[in-house]
């Protein structure tokens, strides 16, 4: 255990350390964020458990294999996977010190994320038009809640990413903005992982 020093604002060791003083404060924040992701894992785990338990209860409404249209879902999957990769490229640019590259790749990531959300929303609208609503059956309640919660996470991530790009434009790459980029890319990878399981358990197992 490397002690992080004994400070209210952890890690600041006095004036002389200047900027470096923020260094391990940022490490603490990154650890806090990781723990938050663990709680988010459990949140999704609970939604998955509910979906799995209720997914056969269609109550006379449409079933998964009648409802899901795979081309759109496959497109969403590859888009999100690619955006996870591009958010990684953004971090690489940041570590090289290239602000332009960093913001550029973040923009690419955000555009991919937005198109993912666009596809998902149009998928939802189409389902509701066909009469498959959240109030139709337990299966659809579980489906909309699980997939919708993931979509909500992605949307929040998008807003956050825009806010971060503004901060990067204003302040450049500092220890604080660096931590923020690291954290959001972690968040983005995490959402991709959750999607893999949505894709597998909800869609693939639904249509097979």
């Amino acid at each position: 255990m490397a002690n992080q020093g004994n400070h209210a604002v952890a890690g600041a060791h006095g004036h002389d350390h200047g900027h470096g003083g923020h260094h391990d404060l940022e490490a603490l924040r990154q650890m806090g964020f990781w723990l938050f992701l663990i709680t988010d894992c459990i949140l999704f785990g609970t939604l998955f458990a509910t979906y799995i338990v209720l997914h056969n209860n269609t109550a006379g409404g449409p079933t998964a294999s009648e409802l899901f249209e795979m081309p759109g879902v496959i497109a969403e999957t590859f888009i999100l996977l690619t955006s996870s990769f591009t958010s990684g490229l953004a971090v690489l640019c940041m570590n090289r010190g290239s602000r332009k590259g960093l913001i550029g790749w973040l923009i690419v990531t955000a555009i991919l994320g937005a198109s993912f959300i666009g596809l998902e929303v149009s998928e939802f609208i189409k389902m509701v038009d066909e009469g498959a609503k959240i109030s139709t059956s337990a299966f659809l309640s579980g489906f909309f809640t699980l997939v919708g919660t993931h979509g909500l996470h992605v949307s929040v991530g998008l807003c956050w990413m825009v806010a971060l790009m503004i901060q990067l434009g204003k302040r450049g790459i500092t220890s604080v903005t660096k931590r923020k980029v690291n954290v959001i890319s972690l968040y983005w990878h995490f959402l991709d992982v959750v999607w893999i399981f949505v894709f597998t358990i909800v869609y693939m197992m639904g249509v097979m």
Partner: peptide, 14 residues
Amino acid sequence: HDAHGDSHESHGSL
């Protein structure tokens, strides 16, 4: 100081 967590640095390469 060297002990302080650069654990959060991403060391990933292209």
